[in-house]
Amino acid sequence: MTTFEAPRVEVVENALEPTTQPRRRVKRKTVNTIIWFVALLALTAIVLYPLLWLFLSTFKPSSEFASNPGLIPENPTVDNYVKVVEGIAGTPLWRFFANSFFIAIMAVIGTLLSSALAAYAFARIRFRGVGILFAAMIGTLLLPFHVIIIPQYIMFNKLELVDTYWPLILPKFLATEAFFVFLIVQFIRNIPRDMDEAARIDGAGHLRIFFSIILPLIKPALITSAIFTFIWTWNDFLGPLLYVNSPEKYPLPIALRLYNDATSTSDYGATAAVSFLALVPILIFFIVFQRFLVAGVATQGLKG
């Protein structure tokens, strides 16, 4: 379908050689980079403004939220943080962080393992029933999860797993989030088959092809999945709400909601402060892992 004439290998080799570029081109490149930089900076400013607002508002007393929609607090205070760090009803704040961290890490491991395996089967192995199973997997994406909450709860309750982390973690090891399976499928299908077929001729089985050829090539997809799983699990509210009973086992999102109960007073200041603190770990996680988004590809490029 594409009109693009594929380049020949020699061309590529040419391109890889260090070439001396004409000076005018360098200049154009610098100008482009400056435009690029300014455009991104402007966009960033717009996108980050609400977050800046949120950050500054953590220094507003709660009663100021309704009266002062501005950026700068009128009566700046650190009370919100002081209050938040104390924790809730005897459970210190770090506990909620630790809980969230544990659940999220387990979720990342489980999701990566199980989703990549399933995705390989869907993308690379031809067997009876693969089409129907693939459709079924896509089908699980379509049903609003609210209607399956109760039957699932009944199951975990019968298994006596309520008030443990199992209902939150076990599904991740069973690739129940079709999003990630499908995502990885798409990336695997984009990898040329020549290599794994060659490896097969060499006598490699699916397991070896999966681990030594496919996995390294889908690093960007794996990193993406890891980032999303971590962040989404970190932010998940409904799962822990239903399955965790003891406050000392609560992850952050539940703890966060406790500062803001509509039937008593809503402590907006503390809510904003907690949610800002809750942002920090996932922001760090993202900053660390987004580097691999490049690294994965760079090493891939260097291999030849």
Partner: peptide, 24 residues
């Protein structure tokens, strides 16, 4: 062993428990 939630979440959880067994 006490557990607490905001009002709407409290009831969402109770409804699920009521249907699935396991009210506190």
């Amino acid at each position: 062993n006490s557990s607490f939630l905001g009002f709407p979440e409290f009831w969402e959880k109770r409804q699920t428990e009521a249907a699935g067994g396991g009210l506190p």
